[in-house]
Amino acid sequence: MPQALRADVGDHAPCDPEFPARAIAHITADREATAEAPLDLVPFANLKGFFTGSGKGQAPQILWDPFTGAFAQFFPATSRSKAVFDAPGGTRTNRAGRVVIQIEALFFPHCRVNGKVFARLADTPCKGWGDLHAWVSSWDVPDVWPMGRPTSLSRNTCPADKWRTQGGWYAHAHVPENNHVDPGSWPAFGSQPPTPSHTEPQFEPFPGASFFQAGRQSPIIDGMHGRLVAEDCDRYASSTRFDVWGAGDVRSYTAWQQKLGFEGRAADGVPGRFSWDRLEVPNV
């Protein structure tokens, strides 16, 4: 996937081309929260680290953060991944399709992000969904839910004949041999953010890495500052000169890059196009 951070875990294996192309939708469900006791969302970098570490045996093709639009890819589309249970000798659930693209959305019910609580995945900003949907569609996965689009956390196992013959999108709750109930909801096909009525960009275009030099003064930097604070990446030591690029901007932007899953030299505090576009600095 062009927009995804590469985090290949190896151990590739072919899918079964005699079955139709499909995608399987999951949520990470990594914490148990309630409406009365919501919990903070686990950072994207933590889940990326899990799937490249001790969780390799459960890794999907794609980890998707619907709050920032970040992606990490652990297997190519043409390989089976390992995010659903596959009983020995039964239906090869991770492979039953020309492609079987599995997506784990970083989400659990009643997660809290920037002080707001989200009960369903479909209630989140679903940033990046357009890119994700387009990429899955490029592998000839049709825009259908053979078992119905998921609307609740409930089990509805797909009959074996339908699983063998009908491609499209399936919830983890639909997959044979499994007992999960996720994802509970999923964004609609073709759903996109509303197009602005004016012709100017809605967000500030990436000005290039060379723009961010010590002492540079610009309303773009001021707008970036506000977005970094809103994304809980405030590492500023001063409360003045928000429009001047300095050490606090570098620290705060590093925190944003790390939130998107970048590590090492890729999280150096200097904006790049991918991280800048995901930050969505208002047009000035």
Score class of each variant (00 low, 15 high):
Asp232Phe: 04
Phe212Pro: 03
Arg235Phe: 08
Gln213Ile: 15
Leu228Asn: 04
Trp245Arg: 11
Arg216Leu: 05
Ala237Gly: 02
Ser218Arg: 12
Met224Val: 07
Ser238Arg: 14
Leu228Trp: 01
Gln217Ala: 13
Tyr236Leu: 02
Asp232Gly: 06
Pro219Asp: 03
Gly215Ile: 06
Tyr236Gln: 02
Ala230Asp: 12
Leu228Tyr: 04
Ala230Trp: 07
Ala237Cys: 00
Pro219Tyr: 00
Thr240Pro: 01
Asp243Pro: 08
Ile220Glu: 13
Ala230Asn: 10
His225Thr: 13
Arg235Asp: 06
Asp234Cys: 14
Asp232Gln: 09
Arg235His: 12
Tyr236Asn: 01
Thr240Gly: 01
Asp243Met: 02
Cys233Gly: 05
Phe242Trp: 14
Tyr236Ile: 02
His225Arg: 15
Gly215Ala: 08
Trp245Pro: 06
Ile220Arg: 13
Asp243Ile: 03
Trp245Ser: 06
Pro219Trp: 00
Ala230Pro: 04
Ser239Gln: 12
Arg227Pro: 14
Ser239Ile: 03
Val229Arg: 05
Gly226His: 11
Met224Ser: 13
Asp234Tyr: 15
Pro219Lys: 01
Ala237Gln: 03
Arg241Gln: 12
Ala237Val: 00
Asp234Gln: 14
Pro219Ala: 00
Glu231Ser: 12
Arg216Asp: 00
Gly223Cys: 10
Gly226Arg: 09
Cys233Met: 07
Asp234Thr: 15
Asp234Pro: 14
Asp234Asn: 15
Arg216Gly: 01
Ala214Glu: 11
Arg216Val: 04
Ile220Gln: 13
Gln217His: 06
Thr240Met: 04
Glu231Gln: 12
Arg216His: 04
Pro219Ile: 00
Asp222Val: 14
Arg227Leu: 08
Asp234Trp: 14
Ser218His: 11
Tyr236Met: 04
Arg241Ile: 06
Phe242Arg: 13
Pro219Thr: 00
Ala214Trp: 09
Ile220Ala: 10
Gln217Lys: 08
Phe242Leu: 11
Gln217Asn: 06
Cys233Gln: 04
Ile220Pro: 04
Ser218Tyr: 08
